[in-house]
Protein backbone atom coordinates (compact mmCIF):
# COMPACT_ATOMS: atom_id res chain seq x y z
CA UNK A 1 0.00 0.00 0.00
CA UNK A 2 1.71 3.12 -1.17
CA UNK A 3 1.12 6.61 0.01
CA UNK A 4 1.52 8.78 -3.06
CA UNK A 5 2.54 12.27 -2.24
CA UNK A 6 3.42 13.68 -5.64
CA UNK A 7 2.28 12.78 -9.13
CA UNK A 8 3.38 14.31 -12.40
CA UNK A 9 1.14 13.65 -15.41
CA UNK A 10 2.19 14.46 -18.95
CA UNK A 11 4.35 17.38 -17.90
CA UNK A 12 5.68 19.60 -20.63
CA UNK A 13 7.92 22.55 -20.01
CA UNK A 14 9.85 24.82 -22.33
CA UNK A 15 11.04 28.40 -22.47
CA UNK A 16 10.22 31.00 -25.08
CA UNK A 17 12.84 33.70 -25.30
CA UNK A 18 10.85 36.64 -26.58
CA UNK A 19 13.84 38.89 -26.68
CA UNK A 20 15.76 36.46 -28.87
CA UNK A 21 13.22 36.51 -31.63
CA UNK A 22 10.82 34.22 -29.83
CA UNK A 23 13.24 31.29 -29.83
CA UNK A 24 11.73 28.26 -28.17
CA UNK A 25 13.71 25.93 -25.91
CA UNK A 26 11.80 22.76 -25.23
CA UNK A 27 13.12 21.07 -22.08
CA UNK A 28 10.63 18.58 -20.68
CA UNK A 29 8.11 16.55 -22.53
CA UNK A 30 5.74 13.79 -21.55
CA UNK A 31 7.01 13.40 -17.98
CA UNK A 32 5.01 10.98 -15.86
CA UNK A 33 6.24 10.30 -12.38
CA UNK A 34 4.91 9.39 -8.95
CA UNK A 35 6.69 9.69 -5.64
CA UNK A 36 5.43 7.98 -2.51
CA UNK A 37 6.20 8.44 1.16
CA UNK A 38 9.49 6.85 2.17
CA UNK A 39 10.85 6.91 -1.38
CA UNK A 40 13.90 8.72 -2.62
CA UNK A 41 13.57 9.11 -6.36
CA UNK A 42 16.81 10.04 -8.06
CA UNK A 43 16.61 11.92 -11.33
CA UNK A 44 19.04 10.68 -13.90
CA UNK A 45 20.00 11.93 -17.29
CA UNK A 46 22.81 13.76 -19.01
CA UNK A 47 23.27 17.45 -18.58
CA UNK A 48 20.65 19.48 -20.39
CA UNK A 49 17.86 16.94 -20.06
CA UNK A 50 16.03 19.20 -17.65
CA UNK A 51 16.57 17.62 -14.27
CA UNK A 52 16.84 20.96 -12.53
CA UNK A 53 13.95 22.30 -14.56
CA UNK A 54 11.79 19.42 -13.39
CA UNK A 55 12.64 20.04 -9.74
CA UNK A 56 11.93 23.71 -10.02
CA UNK A 57 8.63 23.01 -11.70
CA UNK A 58 7.67 20.68 -8.86
CA UNK A 59 8.40 23.49 -6.44
CA UNK A 60 6.40 26.04 -8.34
CA UNK A 61 9.45 28.06 -9.21
CA UNK A 62 8.78 27.37 -12.89
CA UNK A 63 5.31 27.38 -14.37
CA UNK A 64 3.74 24.20 -15.64
CA UNK A 65 3.24 24.60 -19.36
CA UNK A 66 1.24 21.51 -20.12
CA UNK A 67 0.19 18.59 -17.99
CA UNK A 68 -0.30 18.36 -14.24
CA UNK A 69 1.64 18.25 -11.04
CA UNK A 70 -0.54 16.85 -8.30
CA UNK A 71 0.52 17.33 -4.72
CA UNK A 72 -1.15 15.99 -1.61
CA UNK A 73 -1.39 19.11 0.53
CA UNK A 74 -3.02 18.84 3.94
CA UNK A 75 -6.10 16.72 3.26
CA UNK A 76 -6.51 17.94 -0.31
CA UNK A 77 -5.00 17.34 -3.69
CA UNK A 78 -3.79 20.40 -5.54
CA UNK A 79 -2.59 20.79 -9.10
CA UNK A 80 0.31 23.17 -9.52
CA UNK A 81 -0.84 23.86 -13.06
CA UNK A 82 -3.92 25.63 -11.75
CA UNK A 83 -3.18 26.45 -8.12
CA UNK A 84 -3.19 30.15 -7.23
CA UNK A 85 0.14 31.57 -6.02
CA UNK A 86 -1.06 31.84 -2.42
CA UNK A 87 -1.79 28.16 -2.33
CA UNK A 88 1.63 27.34 -3.68
CA UNK A 89 3.19 29.45 -0.92
CA UNK A 90 1.18 27.55 1.64
CA UNK A 91 2.25 24.29 0.06
CA UNK A 92 5.89 25.29 0.31
CA UNK A 93 5.51 26.11 3.94
CA UNK A 94 3.77 22.96 5.09
CA UNK A 95 4.14 20.33 2.43
CA UNK A 96 7.22 20.78 0.27
CA UNK A 97 10.75 21.66 1.26
CA UNK A 98 13.44 22.57 -1.24
CA UNK A 99 17.20 22.50 -1.06
CA UNK A 100 18.47 24.54 -3.97
CA UNK A 101 21.86 24.24 -5.48
CA UNK A 102 23.14 27.49 -4.03
CA UNK A 103 22.18 29.32 -0.93
CA UNK A 104 20.46 32.55 -1.77
CA UNK A 105 22.03 34.91 0.69
CA UNK A 106 19.90 37.59 2.31
CA UNK A 107 22.02 40.34 3.80
CA UNK A 108 22.10 40.74 7.57
CA UNK A 109 20.03 37.73 8.57
CA UNK A 110 22.03 35.51 10.97
CA UNK A 111 22.59 31.88 10.04
CA UNK A 112 20.59 30.56 12.96
CA UNK A 113 17.57 32.57 11.85
CA UNK A 114 17.89 31.47 8.25
CA UNK A 115 17.73 27.88 9.39
CA UNK A 116 14.98 28.52 11.94
CA UNK A 117 12.78 30.38 9.50
CA UNK A 118 10.85 27.42 8.05
CA UNK A 119 9.85 26.46 11.59
CA UNK A 120 8.90 30.05 12.46
CA UNK A 121 6.62 30.22 9.43
CA UNK A 122 4.90 27.11 10.72
CA UNK A 123 4.11 29.00 13.88
CA UNK A 124 6.76 27.54 16.11
CA UNK A 125 8.05 29.98 18.73
CA UNK A 126 11.38 31.70 18.11
CA UNK A 127 13.22 30.07 20.99
CA UNK A 128 12.19 26.52 20.15
CA UNK A 129 12.86 27.07 16.45
CA UNK A 130 16.35 28.40 17.16
CA UNK A 131 17.07 25.51 19.41
CA UNK A 132 16.24 22.95 16.74
CA UNK A 133 18.18 24.97 14.20
CA UNK A 134 21.17 24.94 16.51
CA UNK A 135 21.02 21.17 16.91
CA UNK A 136 20.96 20.69 13.17
CA UNK A 137 23.77 23.15 12.55
CA UNK A 138 25.88 21.40 15.14
CA UNK A 139 25.36 18.13 13.39
CA UNK A 140 26.38 19.74 10.13
CA UNK A 141 29.58 20.99 11.77
CA UNK A 142 28.75 24.67 11.64
CA UNK A 143 30.30 25.93 14.87
CA UNK A 144 28.24 28.00 17.26
CA UNK A 145 30.38 31.07 16.86
CA UNK A 146 29.11 31.33 13.29
CA UNK A 147 25.43 31.12 14.11
CA UNK A 148 24.91 34.82 14.69
CA UNK A 149 26.67 35.77 11.47
CA UNK A 150 25.00 36.05 8.09
CA UNK A 151 26.42 33.33 5.82
CA UNK A 152 27.61 35.74 3.14
CA UNK A 153 31.23 35.35 4.23
CA UNK A 154 31.13 31.57 4.69
CA UNK A 155 32.88 29.15 2.40
CA UNK A 156 30.90 27.41 -0.34
CA UNK A 157 30.74 24.24 1.68
CA UNK A 158 29.54 26.03 4.79
CA UNK A 159 26.89 27.87 2.82
CA UNK A 160 25.69 24.64 1.32
CA UNK A 161 25.38 23.04 4.73
CA UNK A 162 23.32 25.98 5.93
CA UNK A 163 21.18 25.52 2.84
CA UNK A 164 20.67 21.85 3.60
CA UNK A 165 19.78 22.58 7.20
CA UNK A 166 17.21 25.10 6.13
CA UNK A 167 15.72 22.76 3.55
CA UNK A 168 15.41 19.77 5.85
CA UNK A 169 14.60 21.26 9.23
CA UNK A 170 10.82 21.25 8.84
CA UNK A 171 10.77 17.71 7.45
CA UNK A 172 7.85 18.36 5.19
CA UNK A 173 6.02 15.43 3.58
CA UNK A 174 7.84 16.12 0.29
CA UNK A 175 11.44 17.23 0.00
CA UNK A 176 13.05 18.32 -3.26
CA UNK A 177 16.85 18.32 -3.44
CA UNK A 178 19.03 19.85 -6.14
CA UNK A 179 22.61 18.61 -5.70
CA UNK A 180 22.63 18.88 -1.92
CA UNK A 181 26.13 17.42 -1.53
CA UNK A 182 27.84 19.15 -4.44
CA UNK A 183 30.22 21.45 -2.56
CA UNK A 184 30.91 19.18 0.40
CA UNK A 185 33.95 17.25 1.54
CA UNK A 186 33.69 13.56 2.40
CA UNK A 187 32.91 13.99 6.06
CA UNK A 188 30.19 16.54 5.59
CA UNK A 189 28.77 14.67 2.66
CA UNK A 190 28.32 11.65 4.88
CA UNK A 191 26.52 13.72 7.49
CA UNK A 192 24.16 15.20 4.92
CA UNK A 193 23.47 11.80 3.43
CA UNK A 194 22.62 10.44 6.84
CA UNK A 195 20.29 13.32 7.46
CA UNK A 196 18.49 12.86 4.18
CA UNK A 197 18.11 9.17 4.78
CA UNK A 198 16.70 9.74 8.25
CA UNK A 199 14.16 12.18 6.87
CA UNK A 200 13.17 9.61 4.28
CA UNK A 201 12.81 6.87 6.84
CA UNK A 202 10.60 9.08 8.92
CA UNK A 203 8.21 9.14 6.01
CA UNK A 204 9.01 12.06 3.72
CA UNK A 205 8.86 11.54 -0.04
CA UNK A 206 12.14 12.67 -1.52
CA UNK A 207 13.06 13.53 -5.07
CA UNK A 208 16.46 14.81 -6.01
CA UNK A 209 19.42 15.28 -8.27
CA UNK A 210 22.66 13.78 -6.99
CA UNK A 211 25.71 14.28 -9.07
CA UNK A 212 27.79 11.78 -7.16
CA UNK A 213 27.16 8.13 -8.10
CA UNK A 214 28.03 6.97 -4.63
CA UNK A 215 25.48 9.30 -3.04
CA UNK A 216 22.92 8.30 -5.61
CA UNK A 217 23.37 4.64 -4.89
CA UNK A 218 23.32 5.10 -1.13
CA UNK A 219 20.24 7.29 -0.91
CA UNK A 220 18.11 6.46 -3.90
CA UNK A 221 15.33 3.92 -3.68
CA UNK A 222 14.41 4.36 -7.31
CA UNK A 223 15.86 5.94 -10.42
CA UNK A 224 13.89 8.08 -12.80
CA UNK A 225 15.50 8.61 -16.14
CA UNK A 226 14.61 11.75 -18.03
CA UNK A 227 14.12 11.41 -21.74
CA UNK A 228 15.50 13.98 -24.15
CA UNK A 229 12.76 16.46 -24.96
CA UNK A 230 12.97 15.85 -28.69
CA UNK A 231 12.90 12.10 -28.41
CA UNK A 232 9.97 11.79 -25.99
Amino acid sequence: MSDHRLRVIGLEKGFTLHNQGGMRLPVLRGIDLTVAAGECVVLKGPSGTGKSTLLRTLYGNYLVEQGHVLVRHDERVIDLATAPPRLILEMRRRTMGFVSQFLRVIPRVPTIDIVAEPLRSLGIAAQAARQRAGTLLERLAIPQRLWSLPPATFSGGEQQRVNVARGLIAEQPIIVLDEPTAALDDLNRAVVMALIDEVRRRGSAIIGIFHDVEVRDALGTRIFELPHAESA
Binding site: S2, D3, H4, L6, R7, L70, V71, L87
Partner: peptide, 13 residues
Protein backbone atom coordinates in the same frame (compact mmCIF):
# COMPACT_ATOMS: atom_id res chain seq x y z
CA UNK B 1 -3.93 2.41 -2.43
CA UNK B 2 -3.55 6.02 -1.83
CA UNK B 3 -3.17 7.19 -5.40
CA UNK B 4 -3.36 10.75 -6.58
CA UNK B 5 -5.68 11.29 -9.49
CA UNK B 6 -6.87 14.29 -11.43
CA UNK B 7 -10.38 13.77 -10.23
CA UNK B 8 -9.17 14.33 -6.68
CA UNK B 9 -8.10 17.88 -7.33
CA UNK B 10 -10.18 20.10 -5.12
CA UNK B 11 -11.23 23.60 -5.96
CA UNK B 12 -9.49 26.18 -3.84
CA UNK B 13 -11.83 27.37 -1.09
Amino acid sequence: MNDLSLTDVAATP
